[in-house]
C-alpha cells in the first residue's frame, strides 16, 4: 500500500472509475455539522469546480478529500486507498507525493526566493538541490515567471505569487490538485492569468483538479460543477450513477 503513496506509481491509475470517491462523509466541529453526508466521485483528469455559499462546507469537504481532516463518518477512497485507514505519516507522504495544494494567499515562505519556494516539495521528497532548482526553473518558465525566480514573495504581485504557488503545487506531478479559492484575492485579469496557466499545465499532464471558487468565471474553466449547500451536495450532482 505504501507504494501507492509514492510518485513512482502515479501512472497506475485505474483506466476507469473515479480517482477520488467520497461516500456519506460527515464532519462535525462541536455542535456545527459542517458536512452532513456528502457523496462525490471525481474522475481522473477531470477539472471539478466546487461552489456554494460561504460557510456551506466547501473547505471542509476539500480537507476531508485530501486526508487533512478525518471524517467523523463515511469513507474517502483515493486511487483505491481508504484514506481513513492511513496513519498520519502515511497521509503526509500521500499529500507530499500524490496531491498538490493552492490556497488563497500567503502560502509562500517569505524568506525564500520564488525558485527556492517551488523547489521545497522536491527537496522534501528527497530530490537533490541542483536537480530541484533546475526543475523549479523549468516550472517558472512554463508559468511565464521567467524573470521572477530570484524575487522574494513580498516583491511579487498577487498574481505572480499565486502562479508561484501553482508551480509549487504542480512541481511534484501530483495526481490531484486541490485549490481553495486560488484567485479569490486577485483582480479579474490576474485571476485569468493564473487560471489559464494552471489549466494549461494540468490539461497537459492529465492532472485531476478540485477547485473551490465563488467566481462563476473561474468555474467556467471547469469540466463539471458541484454546489455545496448546508454541508450537502444535492442528489445526482456529486455522483453520476445516483
Amino acid at each position: 500500500m505504501t507504494a501507492l503513496l509514492t510518485r513512482e506509481t502515479a501512472q497506475s491509475i485505474p483506466a476507469d472509475g473515479p480517482i477520488l470517491s467520497a461516500r456519506a462523509v460527515v464532519k462535525r466541529f462541536g455542535q456545527t455539522e459542517a458536512l452532513r453526508g456528502v457523496d462525490l466521485d471525481i474522475e481522473p483528469g477531470e477539472v471539478l469546480a466546487v461552489m456554494g455559499p460561504s460557510g456551506s462546507g466547501k473547505s471542509t469537504l476539500l480537507h476531508c478529500l485530501a486526508g487533512v481532516l478525518a471524517p467523523d463518518d463515511g469513507s474517502v477512497v483515493f486511487d483505491g486507498i481508504e484514506i481513513s485507514r492511513l496513519n498520519e505519516r502515511q497521509r503526509s507522504l500521500l499529500r507530499l507525493n500524490r496531491l498538490g495544494f493552492v490556497f488563497q494567499f500567503g502560502q509562500l515562505l517569505p524568506d525564500l526566493t520564488a525558485v527556492d519556494n517551488i523547489s521545497v516539495p522536491l527537496l522534501l521528497s528527497g530530490v537533490r538541490r541542483n536537480e530541484a532548482l533546475k526543475r523549479a526553473d523549468d516550472w517558472l518558465e512554463r508559468l511565464g515567471l521567467g524573470d521572477a525566480g530570484q524575487k522574494l514573495p513580498a516583491e511579487l504581485s498577487g498574481g505572480q505569487a499565486q502562479r508561484v504557488a501553482v508551480a509549487r503545487a504542480l512541481v511534484t506531478n501530483p495526481t490531484v490538485l486541490f485549490a481553495d479559492e486560488p484567485t479569490g484575492s486577485l483582480d479579474s485579469l490576474a485571476a485569468e492569468q493564473v487560471m489559464n496557466a494552471l489549466l494549461d499545465q494540468v490539461k497537459a499532464a492529465g492532472t485531476t483538479v478540485v477547485i473551490i471558487t465563488h467566481d462563476p468565471r473561474t468555474a467556467a474553466y471547469a469540466d463539471r460543477e458541484v454546489i455545496v449547500r448546508d454541508g450537502r451536495i444535492p442528489a445526482g450532482n456529486g455522483v453520476r450513477s445516483a
Binding site: 487533512v68 505519516r89 503526509s92 507522504l93 500521500l94 499529500r95 507530499l96 507525493n97 496531491l99 498538490g100 495544494f101 490556497f103 500567503g106 502560502q107 509562500l108 515562505l109 517569505p110 521545497v120 516539495p121 522534501l124 503545487a169
Partner: peptide, 18 residues
C-alpha cells in the same frame, strides 16, 4: 511568526522532522 506557513507546509506533506 511563521506558524501559518509551517502549518501549510505540513498540510502539503512536510514530515514532522523537518
Amino acid at each position: 511568526e511563521r506558524k501559518r506557513i509551517f502549518g501549510l507546509l505540513r498540510l502539503m506533506g512536510m514530515p514532522n522532522g523537518v
